[in-house]
Design a protein around this nucleic acid. Structure first.
Length: 469
DNA sequence: ATGTGC
């Protein structure tokens, strides 16, 4: 701290911070100059570069901004066999926050006359905000353990969805190495009544339309065509994931001296992946990841019921992918712990973890925009940098307080409705805090992501109706 | 992000 961070521009979309001080690797920021954040987030890129076992670089995506310990839009991988660490701050409080996209077998013109009724129904059936309630009322601890161990797969087994849904979920709906015994009692309590709830902040459920297709072949493989209606769901693991992060940060803070680890920021609390504390966090994190997927599965099912009932219309899953997660992955023969925080995995065509029917197209990468703005579908590219990762959305540029001072919820609703976008918010205050003017421009972020060679654009989606958390 | 903040 106390010095200006030196950035070396290497290409229009690539900046480098050379190793200095305790940095073990350089920092690499994949962004255009206009997207570079305030100094604090760049300092966080530098801080992450000091973590034990980090390899290649401390990466940042174009939507980089300040976060807890790690920047949001940060990607960092550690070598497990070289004492590499796992850090809860490298995943964030909303473990497994992510996006699910479903497509309707209907075009926007046909749906238009039913839009208001559909939004009113979703407003009624999608639990969100501070209010209690969830789509799925778990009968007790046994069912919650099923959710934590088997995620969307358990939800489908229990009748909430169809088998094909799992083909289109990251990890086919469940991470294998969840350890329920590492989920504390408070986290369990908080999780019991929130499976199938949106939450608040930037979480939303949107009815959208495919406005533009950039790659016809890949879009067709994803089931997308121009004019088609789709539904995007953006949410995470609610209070359960938050509590797990809190609990394991505390546990790691205590044992860091024992492992001889020092970090420049206490928010970078970490432990070796190959240690009891590291394994404990990864087991609990995987359980929260499964919870997040089950959550999105249930919200998708509630939306399907509304569409079937009011529009006689089916919804097929395009994909479900997280943008807050650490994963054990093999890259160039090395076993790495890849942290993605506000960064989306973007597998290239023919990657072995893709479902067979998506192999030629690559992984669908789902980028939620800000309320009233576009969202994107992207795909992974061969040789993608940063361990096959890309951006996760438009990063915030204004605090919630600043945002709420700039506009009222009612004004924002009027402005959106003047653009033909129907809005159903949880609270006026919450709506105002999410004004699009408080965010970077998602089009600019996606252009930079493609320009930096992280992904390719497939389709641009525009909002028709918003159910806001 | 979060039964919002040490």
């Amino acid at each position: 701290m106390g010095y200006a961070i030196q950035l070396v521009q290497e290409t229009p979309y690539r900046f480098r911070i050379e190793r200095h001080g305790p940095m073990r690797v350089p920092g690499v920021i994949l962004a255009s100059r206009e997207l570079l954040p305030e100094d604090q987030a760049l300092q966080q890129v530098v801080n992450v570069a000091t973590l034990p076992g980090i390899v290649r670089a401390s990466y940042a995506m174009p939507d980089l901004h300040w976060g807890y310990g790690f920047p949001i839009g940060g990607v960092a991988a550690t070598d497990i066999t070289a004492g590499g660490v796992v850090s809860p701050g490298g995943v964030g409080f909303d473990i497994s926050c992510g996006v699910r996209l479903l497509v309707a077998d209907m075009d926007r013109d046909l749906l238009a006359p039913r839009m208001t009724r559909l939004l009113d129904r979703l407003d009624h059936v999608i639990p969100r905000g501070a209010a209690r309630g969830a789509v799925w009322h778990l009968t007790g601890r046994t069912q919650l353990e099923g959710v934590l161990s088997d995620g969307a797969r358990y939800a489908v087994e229990q009748g909430h969805g169809v088998a094909r849904d799992l083909e289109r979920c990251e990890d086919f709906g469940a991470v294998a190495d969840a350890d329920v015994s590492q989920v504390g009692s408070r986290a369990m309590e908080r999780g019991l009544n929130q499976v199938g709830s949106l939450g608040s902040g930037n979480h939303f459920l949107e009815i959208q339309a495919v406005e533009e297709v950039y790659d016809e072949a890949v879009a067709a493989a994803f089931g997308l065509r121009r004019g088609q209606v789709c539904v995007m769901i953006h949410c995470g693991s609610r209070g359960l994931g938050h509590q797990i992060c809190t609990d394991h940060v505390r546990a790691m803070e205590k044992v860091m001296p024992h492992y001889g680890i020092t970090v420049p920021d206490r928010q970078l609390a970490c432990a070796p992946v190959d240690s009891s504390e590291g394994r404990a966090y990864l087991g609990a994190m995987a359980a929260a990841a499964n919870y997040g997927r089950a959550n999105r599965q249930l919200l998708g099912e509630a939306t399907r019921r509304a569409f079937a009932d009011l529009a006689d219309c089916g919804l097929d899953l395009v994909y479900d992918v997280s943008h807050n997660l650490a994963k054990i992955e093999t890259h160039d023969g090395a076993r790495l712990c890849v942290h993605r925080k506000g960064a989306t995995r973007a597998l290239p065509p023919y990657h072995p973890d893709l479902p067979a029917d998506l192999a030629p197209a690559g992984q669908p990468v789902l980028i939620p925009g800000t309320m009233g703005t576009a969202s994107y579908v992207l795909t992974g590219v061969p040789g993608g940098e940063a361990f096959h990762s890309t951006c996760h959305g438009a990063g915030r540029t204004q605090s919630r307080h600043q945002a709420a001072r700039s506009i009222t919820g009612e004004q924002l609703r009027d402005r959106l409705e003047a653009q033909g976008i129907v809005v159903r918010g949880a609270t006026w205050r919450g709506l105002a805090e999410e004004t699009p003017t408080a965010y970077k421009d998602v089009d600019t972020v996606v252009t930079a992501s493609e320009g930096a060679g992280l992904c390719r654009k497939v389709a641009r989606l525009v909002p028709l109706g918003v159910v806001k958390g």
